[in-house]
């Protein structure tokens, strides 16, 4: 008799637990909005000219869910429209890291730099050629041609005819592979790139507040971080000037991560 009662109770308990388990996430997720909805909301605010509010919405998506090229580009647009050039350039650069072919972001970045007078010095020919592609693009090119080279060599084991063609193709692949590797190596420094996000950045001789200044560096300029000391970073700008900058006056292009509590604070402080 007891066994029969338990046999009836067990499915009922399981059913209740199943319902609770399914309903719990729905209940907690209900107040939160999906990133897509927030993104659309941000776009609407931008369209209404409410750049500051749109900026907050985009920042919320980044802090909670992650980022993408278009999202960072829209965020950069908001910064550009609210006059924070350094942060705008930083986010355009980040957007281009994720979507190198995004011509809108590239065009906006060039326009912004032109408006700020942040044009680049003429580079030597080799560096100019290397700058056509970024680090990821050179790496991808090298990877693709390494795969081609491997396939051509494997085909040589299977097929005996067409040896001359395979040799030419192999040589071509090897040449492109070497060029792409050299390009990737020359762009390797890109990993240390940071953007000046303060409009009051002075290069200092030593990493101390009382140190004398060796020059001013404009907001939005790209610098390379060489080393750290306390709250200062030793940086080199694109014309070779070196000096110490306070860390909160620059932001690493690759140093963006989801869930960072200081993400919004940092931008706030840079205002």
């Amino acid at each position: 008799m007891k066994l029969t009662r338990y046999a009836l109770l067990l499915p009922a308990i399981c059913a209740v637990l199943l319902i609770v388990a399914l309903a719990a996430p729905l209940a907690t997720a209900a107040p939160a909005q999906s990133p897509e909805v927030l993104f659309q909301q941000g776009n609407d605010l931008y369209g209404q000219g409410k750049y500051q509010e749109a900026l907050q919405v985009y920042s919320r998506i980044i802090a909670e869910d992650g980022f993408s090229g278009p999202l960072l580009s829209n965020l950069a647009d908001c910064y550009a429209q609210t006059g924070r050039a350094g942060l705008a350039i930083l986010n355009y650069e980040r957007a281009l890291r994720l979507s190198p072919g995004d011509s809108d972001s590239r065009g906006n970045l060039e326009l912004l730099r032109k408006n700020l007078g942040l044009f680049q010095e003429e580079l030597p020919l080799a560096r100019h050629a290397a700058s056509f592609l970024d680090l990821d693009q050179w790496t991808l090119l090298a990877g693709v041609f390494l795969v081609f080279l491997t396939l051509i060599n494997l085909a040589g084991l299977r097929f005996s005819n067409g040896k001359q063609v395979r040799r030419w193709l192999g040589g071509l692949c090897l040449a492109v592979l070497l060029v792409a590797t050299a390009g990737a190596l020359s762009q390797y420094r890109q990993l240390d790139e940071a953007v000046v996000i303060s409009n009051d950045a002075h290069l200092l001789l030593s990493p101390f507040p009382a140190s004398s200044s060796v020059g001013v560096i404009a907001e939005g300029r790209i610098v390379y971080t060489l080393k750290q000391h306390g709250r200062y970073s030793l940086v080199e700008d694109q014309v070779g000037r070196t000096g110490w900058l306070e860390k909160d006056k620059i932001a690493s292009i690759d140093g963006i991560a989801v869930g960072r509590k200081d993400y919004q604070d940092k931008k706030g402080s840079a205002q």
């Binding site: 369209g47 550009a80 429209q81 609210t82 906006n108 680090l135």
Partner: peptide
């Protein structure tokens, strides 16, 4: 709120896939 930067391209309407950090290909 504009600080006068005219000529920017229109904003992106598709968000694309989200990721957690920028990791170089290599």
């Amino acid at each position: 709120e504009s600080h006068g930067i005219a000529g920017l391209a229109p904003i992106h309407l598709q968000m694309g896939s989200l990721q957690k950090k920028i990791t170089p290909l290599f």
